[in-house]
Every structure is written in C-alpha cells, then in structure tokens.
Amino acid sequence: MTPQAGAPPRAARATSAGAPVGIFDGGIGSYDMVGRIREAFPRQDIIYLADRASFPYGALTEDELLVSVTRATEGLVRLGAGSVILASNAPSVTVLDRLQERANVPVLGVKPPVAAALGAVAPGAVVAVAGAGVMIDSEALGHHIAAEALRAGTDPGRVVPVRADALIALVESGAFLTPERVAGPVGEFVEALRREHPRLAAITLSSTHLPWLAAEFARVAPDVQLFDPADEVVREFAALVPQPEAAGDLVGGHLTCVATASAKHTLAEFQAMIDTLGLGIRPTLITL
C-alpha cells in the first residue's frame, strides 16, 4: 500500500542497541553522506530526508536556515532518529551551534576541513574552500577559517573562500552525469583559481554536492589535493554507533527515504533525479 502524502512511512525501527540516524539536506547532495555512512557502518539504519520544500538552502537567510533545519531535525526525530546529520555545509557553518542547542538528540554537521588541508600541504601553500555563496559570504565562515588556521598554527590568509554555486547547480540538475557538461566548468573553475592563487595546493569540497565532481577535479588538477568534509563526520559518528559487542542487536542497515516537496520542487522531480542516478530507492512524501 502506498502511504498518503503527509503520512509518516514505516521508518527503520530503533533497536536495543541503537536508533536510526537521520541524514538530510535540501536536495540530492546529502545522498553522498548516506553512502559514506552505509559504507562505514553497514548495519546502521538510516532515514534519509530530502527537504525539497526548503530547497535551495543557498537562497535562505541564516534565520530562515535555522527554522528549516530545526523543522527537519524534529521531523526526523518523530520518525525515530536517535541522532541526526545535517549534511549541508552552509547551515552547518552558520547555524549548527544553535540547532544543537535546540535538539534533544546528537546533531552532527559538515564543515570545511580547513585544518586538515592546511596540515597536509606545504608551508605557504594556498587552500581554497569551495562552497555555496550563502556560506562563502558569511561571517561564520570567516570565524571558522580563523579557528581552523589557529588550530593548524598558520596564517588564515592562506585560506581562500570561493563561490562554487555554478558547480553545485550541475549536480542538483543532474547535468554532472553527462561528462562533457562537467569537464568545461570544473576546468574553468580550477584555472581561475590558479590564475589568482598560483600556490593553490588544496580544495575543500565544502558542499555536499561537490564530492560528486571529485573525479573530474582530480582529472583536471591531479596536483591539487581534495578534502571532503564528510570524512570528519564519519569519524565523529563512530562515537554514536553501538560498541562491537552490542552491534549484533542492530536490525541490519535499513534505508528509509522520505522527502518534502513544493510546487516548484515536486516529488516527481526528486524521483527523476534518483532514477537518473540509479540509486534504486523510492521516497515517501511527507510534511514537516
């Protein structure tokens, strides 16, 4: 029987050892995080939410972002999530602290791994933080870069924030699945960075969409190191996973996909993206 719009689906059940983790953002980008968690913790139940009713996050103010991500987090908890991953860099950088204060479950976010990148490149080399404009232009990102540079013991001036909205759009539209539509924009993006910053040595892919383009980045710039913010989240999530002796109680890696929708961004549109990517999942429409 097909659930009605707004009716909660039969979500992955919590077990004696651990509840499902909810993973969400406003679009298809967060599925990369779903894949990372499934690979690292194959027996972990996951509720994957595409909050299309709030898409695109990049068009929202910080206050609007906080309202949206709070609503999504609370919705995932109602569906049974015992922890939540906000799989979007922009709200993670700008409002994660306030979200964590409101939530009654652990909430992890994805932030540019600036310290890791600075520590991996030569002294004086430049690290670019690529992401959505709402994050790149925020004061919060400046504070994050300063803190990360301090942690790495180096000059924050070596870190260059750069808008990558056009590349993010390639993923969200599905255009990235056609190689010839990706090669030019990614190459031009990297070359523009090199012209302005000849000592470019690393790029943090600080939008959950950008890791989908990692292979093309590596092809056009094999000498530039790429850093995925999801790596740190996977490490942090390990602390929330049941200990090995209790792992046998886990149900076994069920994935439940839910989505919100709007007149502009419909469930059919999202299903078409999923089908194009060959993910083999069918989202249930809900309201939050």
Rank of each mutant, 00 (worst) to 15 (best):
Ala12Thr: 00
Ile286Leu: 08
Gly58Asn: 00
Phe55Asn: 09
Thr61Ala: 07
Arg151Trp: 06
Val160Glu: 04
Leu76Phe: 12
Val77Phe: 09
Ala90Ser: 12
Gly248Gln: 00
Val77Tyr: 07
Val186Leu: 13
Val107Glu: 04
Gly35Lys: 11
Asp223Ile: 09
Phe217Ile: 07
Ala72Asp: 15
Ala261His: 09
Ser83Gly: 12
Gly184Glu: 10
Ser16His: 08
Val220Gly: 07
Ser92Asp: 08
Gly80Val: 09
Glu74Leu: 13
Val126Phe: 05
Arg219Asn: 06
Ala169Val: 15
Asn104Ala: 08
Leu79Trp: 14
Thr287Arg: 07
Leu99Phe: 11
Leu279Val: 01
Thr266Trp: 13
Leu200Ser: 04
Val224Met: 07
Asp249Asn: 13
Glu191Thr: 01
Val129Ile: 11
Glu180Gly: 02
Thr61Asp: 07
Leu108Gly: 14
Ala239Cys: 05
Leu177Tyr: 10
Ser173Asp: 06
Val69Gly: 11
Asp165Ile: 01
Thr287Asp: 11
Leu150Pro: 00
Arg219Gly: 06
Leu200Trp: 04
Ser206Trp: 06
Ser16Arg: 14
Ala261Val: 07
Val186Ile: 15
Gly280Trp: 07
Trp212Arg: 05
Ala81Gln: 03
Asp275Leu: 10
Gly187Met: 07
Arg151Pro: 02
Pro42Met: 06
Gln4Gly: 08
His254Ala: 15
Ala183Ser: 00
Pro113Val: 09
Leu205Glu: 14
Ala140Ser: 00
Ala125Trp: 01
Ala214Phe: 08
Val234His: 11
Leu99Thr: 03
Gly18Asp: 14
Ser138Met: 06
Ala19Tyr: 05
Pro112Val: 12
Leu210Tyr: 04
Gln4Trp: 01
Ala7Asn: 13
Ala166Cys: 00
Leu86Asn: 04
His254Val: 15
Gly18Tyr: 08
Asp228Met: 11
Met273His: 12
Arg10Tyr: 13
Gly82Phe: 08
Thr2Ala: 15
Leu118Val: 02
Trp212Val: 02
Val110Asn: 02
Val129Ala: 04
Ala272Gln: 14
Phe270Ser: 05
Gly131Pro: 01
Thr178Trp: 08
Leu255Asp: 14
Ile168Met: 04
Ala53Leu: 08
Gly18Pro: 08
Ser83Asp: 01
Gly278Asp: 10
Glu74Gln: 15
Leu150His: 12
Asp249Ser: 15
Ile46Gln: 01
Ala238Thr: 13
Ala230Phe: 03
Thr284Trp: 02
Ala122Lys: 15
Gly187Pro: 05
Val129Gly: 10
Leu277Ala: 09
Pro156Val: 10
Arg219Ala: 14
Ala125Val: 05
Val110Met: 15
